[in-house]
Amino acid sequence: MKSLHDMPEGAASASVSLDRLFELAEVLGTLMEHGVAERGLTRARAGLLWALFHDGAMTQRALAGQLGVTPRNVTGLLDALEADGLVVREAHPTDRRAMLVSLTESGRTLTDGLRRGRDALALELFGEMPASQLAAIQDGLETVLARLRAIDRVDG
């Protein structure tokens, strides 16, 4: 196996870039953990609320698919969020076997606060960045994400 020192300059630069992405993921993950914990949530519960905030009411099965978890996992998350008054489950209007999940007013208020926090962080990070630099970052990240998704499809 080659060491980093034996690799061509481009490969070494790519390795450094990946190291920076790992560091970025760790820092953003920590920020997310603190942000949702301040609101009495876990990342999993916040992710479920975020999905409902962006896509509106949906069935438990659709939520499970969107979050990439089992329906049983969604049931546990919903039990806790419903007990906290953040979501409500109601009979689906056209499918007697399904439950439709939606945010309560408290759930919408909480997720709106999460969105405002995200927007404030985005402004702090990117607000003074030249448009061309921001566009380059976005393009580079899109390429990286597409490649990671392709790797995940191959391995998964």
Rank of each mutant, 00 (worst) to 15 (best):
M1L: 07
D6S: 13
M7V: 00
P8F: 02
E9F: 05
G10P: 03
A11W: 12
S13C: 04
S15C: 10
S15G: 13
V16L: 15
V16R: 15
L21F: 14
E23A: 11
E23N: 06
E23Y: 06
E26F: 05
L31G: 05
L31D: 12
H34D: 14
E38P: 03
G40I: 01
L41I: 00
L41M: 14
T42D: 11
A44G: 11
R45P: 06
R45F: 02
A46G: 07
A46L: 07
G47Y: 05
L48F: 05
L48W: 07
L49K: 12
L52C: 09
F53G: 03
D55V: 00
D55L: 10
A57L: 04
Q60K: 15
R61V: 12
A62R: 15
A62M: 09
A64R: 08
G65A: 10
G65S: 13
Q66Y: 06
V69Q: 11
T70Y: 08
P71V: 00
N73L: 04
N73M: 07
V74A: 14
V74E: 09
V74N: 09
T75N: 13
G76F: 07
L77C: 08
L77T: 03
L77Y: 15
D79A: 09
A80V: 03
A80F: 01
A80H: 10
L81S: 09
L81C: 12
L86S: 06
V87G: 08
R89W: 05
E90S: 12
E90Q: 14
E90N: 07
E90G: 04
H92Q: 07
H92T: 01
H92Y: 06
P93S: 06
T94Q: 08
D95S: 06
D95P: 02
D95Q: 09
R97T: 02
R97S: 13
R97F: 08
A98T: 00
A98G: 03
V101D: 09
S102I: 00
S102T: 01
L103F: 05
L103R: 07
T104G: 08
E105W: 04
S106N: 14
G107D: 09
G107N: 09
R108V: 01
T109W: 04
T111G: 04
D112R: 13
D112Y: 02
G113M: 01
L114N: 07
L114G: 06
L114V: 02
G117F: 02
G117R: 11
R118T: 02
L121S: 06
E124I: 00
L125P: 08
F126N: 04
F126W: 12
E128V: 00
M129V: 12
P130W: 04
S132P: 02
A135W: 04
A136L: 11
D139V: 00
G140D: 15
G140F: 07
G140E: 15
L141Y: 14
V144W: 06
L145R: 09
L148I: 01
L148V: 02
R149I: 00
I151Y: 07
